[in-house]
Design a protein around this nucleic acid. Structure first.
Lengths: 332, 332
DNA sequence: ATGAAAGCGCTAACAG
DNA sequence: CTGTTAGCGCTTTCAT
């Protein structure tokens, strides 16, 4: 570690060649310019010796590529998004990209601000789990830089995307839970404006119908994804029935937490209510009751996002791929 | 959104002034250069009209400031780090900084690679929750760019830092748990090489001694922070005793998960064993047993980190501040 | 009070 | 095969 930063010019001088030659060698254009093997070796040796790292900022200024990608997510403390971010970060690092993460809190204004900040940083590509219900914004953005959506889809939006098969996964799990001898099955959920919520609800509905139950609108309770809401909805459900429901699907782990707290407080944790939830946490293996769960395959989501990203960044392929990742089901 | 990027030169031309003038106005040096109020207004109007955003890359190239800060953490999926990152990100955004997050998995080689990647990106400052036991590396790095350590401290390392009072918090909670009528108290922990582990152990030890118990080495079981390890250690503990321990402190939530699974499997969840753990999760309110917990104040940690960061970035203050953040205790 | 001009470190025509 | 050169968009000194 020297005091002064070594530059391309230093390397060129010490290798006894011109800056262009060094640049070509370093960017893999040696072949194309028929640089002698000797020269290449000499340059690389000097680069090595000085532990030279080209300035990404100078490069970006000239070439308009920053080797930077944006990731906009609702919440970094949500396990699913954190996991996806982690896998992505690791893949990006290996590929020489830096991931710039920004949170939106599922607030459209904050989301726009986050996107603006990342755009100002000239990210080469933007990955977004958006709370928007209209594709216009990102379709426009996509004209300037490639956009890849994930986790949420936006109706009528033809951008590349990666999402989980929330609908069919939910249907499978709920259907299995209902089995034969259940006459009712409640649904506790969050904001229905978000596409994953709809998917989960549709899956639940399909399961209810496929099981031959006569669906009741009163089985569906929803507001947002706060644990406190889960508690309230569960309370409401029980008061409405005068007892626990026979079966219950919770649309997220946070809601389940509220449900559990209600059960603990009313001392009904040992009941034989059937339960299933979206999201999977280790602690579900540590509870006295069995709760089946649906785990998003974040590693696969990250892998798919990364692949789409690579593709968009190398060839400017016009093709729009929309990928669906299978969730992992845990029957308990 | 135009097709071509607008530059300083465009603004200058349209405002009928020179690039320098625009630059001065935009950087708040208008006063210093006695630019007419009229000129300032005219420039700002044009900037507004064209929605001009200066290129951070060009600026960085010239000024060697990237308005970027690095955050190296062990694991983005660890709730504490995710929470800290989230608060930091939000503060940085508001201050015009971009947070670059990198994970180390508590692997020293990966940590070095992460730091190298961020250094190459010319971050203006580096914040690190390091797994290293030697301060040399970061002391050296600090000669090039300011370093702020957090969550972990490194012996004999005089860099600015922010940590939680894990020792005293643990002592308080364990002491309260032990109360009067307990003859033993186990400690289940992870890698003792990490400073938080030591803190927690020391706090536990102090509590045991302060409670007048005769400390037994056999009460201490530790390996790493995997839930599976928690299960194994708990099993070992019970087999060793032939029964559940009277009291137990778990050094992390992940270990607690293992403990809970053991209790569920052996059908002892309803026992009256006393328990406390480091880390606080909502689900602790939803369990049939009472587990006291210690919650890191991630918001305060982030706020302190941000403050130290601001300070280092504005005046190059030589002063080294080491801050301690109080944990929040949850008695259950 | 404002402008001209010299780079920051790199890329990629274009010459030779 | 290799070197020369003209910028990328901005900051800042120095002149006016």
């Amino acid at each position: 570690l020297k005091n002064k930063k070594v530059t391309l010019a230093d390397i060129a001088q010490h290798a006894g060649v011109s800056k262009a030659t060094v640049s070509f060698v370093l960017n893999g254009h040696a072949e194309k310019h028929r640089i002698t093997e000797d020269t290449v070796k000499k340059v690389l040796a000097v680069v090595e010796q000085f532990n030279y790292k080209p300035s990404l900022y100078a490069r970006a200024l000239k070439s308009n590529r920053t080797f930077t990608v944006g990731l906009v997510i609702p919440d970094l403390t949500n396990m699913g998004f954190a996991t996806t971010a982690k896998y992505l970060e690791s893949k990006c690092l290996a590929a020489g990209y830096q991931l710039l993460i920004a949170s939106s809190d599922d607030d459209i204004e904050k989301e726009k601000r986050a996107v603006a900040a990342l755009t100002e940083r000239q990210v080469d590509l933007m990955m977004v789990a958006s709370a928007m219900t209209d594709g216009e914004f990102y379709t426009a953005l996509n004209k300037k830089i490639p956009v890849v959506l994930f986790d949420r889809y936006i109706d009528d939006c033809t951008l590349p995307s990666v999402i989980t098969n929330g609908r069919s996964a939910t249907q499978t799990v709920v259907q299995k839970m209902i089995g034969q001898d259940v006459q009712e099955c409640y649904f506790l959920g969050g904001q229905m404006a978000l596409s994953p919520s709809c998917d989960r609800f549709e899956g639940y509905l399909a399961a209810v119908k496929a099981s031959g139950l006569e669906f009741q609108q009163s089985w569906v309770l929803h507001r947002d994804y706060q644990p406190e809401t889960g508690y309230q909805l569960m309370k409401q459900c029980c008061e409405q029935l005068g007892r626990l429901p026979q079966a219950l699907f919770s649309a997220s782990y946070s809601i389940l937490e509220g449900v559990l707290r209600y059960l603990v407080e009313t001392n009904q944790l040992e009941s034989n209510m059937l339960m299933a939830t979206f999201d999977n946490y280790t602690v579900l293996d540590c509870l006295p009751l069995r709760v089946s769960s649906i785990e998003q395959d974040c590693e696969a989501i990250a892998a798919n996002l990364f692949e789409l990203m690579q593709r968009k960044l190398s060839q400017d392929s016009k093709e729009v791929e929309q990928r669906v990742v299978e969730a992992k089901l845990h029957f308990r």
